[in-house]
Simulated scan of single mutants.
Amino acid sequence: MHKNFKGIEKTVFGRGAFAQLGDILNERRGDNDKFMVFVVDQYFKGKPLASQIPQKPGDVVMFIDVDKHEPTTEQIDAMRDDILAKNGLPAGIVGIGGGSIMDIAKAASLMFTNEGSSTLYQGLNLIKKPGIYHVGVPTISGTGAEVSMTAVLTGPVKKLGLKCEWTVFNQVVLDPDLIASVPRDWWFYTGMDTYIHCVESENGIYNNVYSHAFAEQSMKLCEDVYLNEGSGQTPENDEKLMVASLMGGLSLTYSEVGVCHALSYGLSKILGTRHCYANCLAFNHLHDYYPQGVADFKKMLKKHNITLPQGLAKEWSDETITKMAEVSYNLPHMWNHAIGLDWKDKITLDTIKELFKRL
């Protein structure tokens, strides 16, 4: 069956677009209990962006430190319960930050209207009711969270997204000025998430003309930003990277990710490694699965003087590696795409353990 996915309802793009957020939200402030929730990356607390948030009396502003860990089911459940008890049902929720913040906003929007723990809804089309109005404002580009139909959460048993058409943002605000201050290493790691999305989308059985069109253009933009003459952190490249992230997210939505993301989920679930960095750690050793993609990735590493650690696996016990491999193995949709529907005949737990030992 062909995918029939829902896209973002509205998108505004351009420098200074963040200034339009207040007017955009005003159209929905009469909904539910008439207040907005803003979830904002802790990085911006006390910085100019924080003073530009269009907050009104009664609104809730939460600065969240996503450096400590990626979003968890426990975190989303607690946020939902606390706001409902103290404030009521929000008119909407706005995520201002990177992929983790946007996933928090997407997941919370769904859990405000769906009963029980978010652990009940980790998977495809398990959500019962549409969520509240939700807006994504990326301040770092690469994850594709601004366009994807998944809100990835780490639970007590698994790391898996709340995935359905209601997860997709109602509105995104793409302002290239907001990503200008991203530290160089994270500018690289998050941008490589976009690049890896496209490499994996292209190399698998679910690749098609539709997904290819987005991946092709996204990869071209990534090469301009990270590889070609004029590459680097410039205002023009910020615009290119923001669009590349969106297109990379659309490509994987209509195709799928593969081996690298399966390994990344294992690293994140067991070791708490942040997603984009985990992707880079894994992708650097997957030359036999993605030869051209990894070759170009290594050129980008060299060009931007990014050094990834080697020999990490020497510090991991066999128990730790086995746990990571078990997480990765239990992502059949990724292995189906990358290896084929007969992937279980070719990929075993030991195969995946050996891949982790490369790190």
Rank of each mutant, 00 (worst) to 15 (best):
M1I: 09
K6D: 08
I8Y: 02
E9D: 13
K10T: 12
G14H: 05
R15F: 05
G16S: 10
A19W: 00
L21V: 14
G22D: 11
L25A: 09
L25G: 07
L25V: 12
N26P: 04
D33Y: 08
F35Q: 01
V37D: 02
Y43P: 00
Y43M: 10
F44C: 10
I53V: 13
Q55H: 07
Q55D: 04
G58L: 06
V60A: 02
V60N: 04
I64F: 07
D67P: 02
K68I: 14
K68G: 09
E70D: 14
E70W: 01
E74Q: 14
Q75W: 01
D77F: 03
R80W: 01
D81W: 00
D81E: 14
I83K: 07
A85Q: 13
K86D: 09
G88V: 13
I101N: 03
I104W: 00
I104T: 10
K106E: 12
A108R: 01
E115R: 10
T119C: 09
T119Y: 00
T119F: 02
I127F: 07
P130N: 13
I132A: 07
G136D: 02
G136W: 00
P138A: 09
T139F: 06
S141C: 13
G142Q: 01
G144I: 08
A145N: 02
E146I: 12
S148P: 00
M149R: 11
V152G: 04
L153R: 08
L153D: 08
T154D: 11
V157A: 13
L160Q: 12
L162T: 11
C164N: 14
T167N: 06
L174S: 04
L178D: 04
A180W: 00
S181A: 14
V182A: 12
V182C: 14
V182P: 03
R184A: 15
G191S: 08
M192C: 11
D193N: 12
I196E: 01
I196D: 09
H197R: 09
H197Q: 08
C198P: 03
E202N: 10
N203I: 04
G204E: 08
S211T: 11
H212G: 08
H212T: 14
A213L: 09
E216D: 10
S218Y: 02
M219N: 10
M219I: 12
L221K: 06
V225A: 05
Y226E: 05
N228H: 07
G232F: 04
E236L: 11
E239R: 11
E239L: 06
L241D: 03
L246S: 15
G249R: 04
L252N: 07
G258V: 12
A262L: 08
G266D: 10
S268C: 06
K269E: 09
K269V: 07
I270V: 15
L271E: 12
A278G: 13
A282Q: 02
A282P: 05
N284C: 09
H287S: 15
V294E: 07
K298C: 13
L301S: 03
K302E: 14
L308T: 11
Q310E: 15
Q310W: 03
Q310D: 13
A313K: 01
A313W: 02
T320I: 15
Y329N: 12
L341I: 09
K344T: 15
K346E: 12
T351K: 03
E354A: 11
L355V: 09
F356V: 13
K357Y: 07
R358C: 13
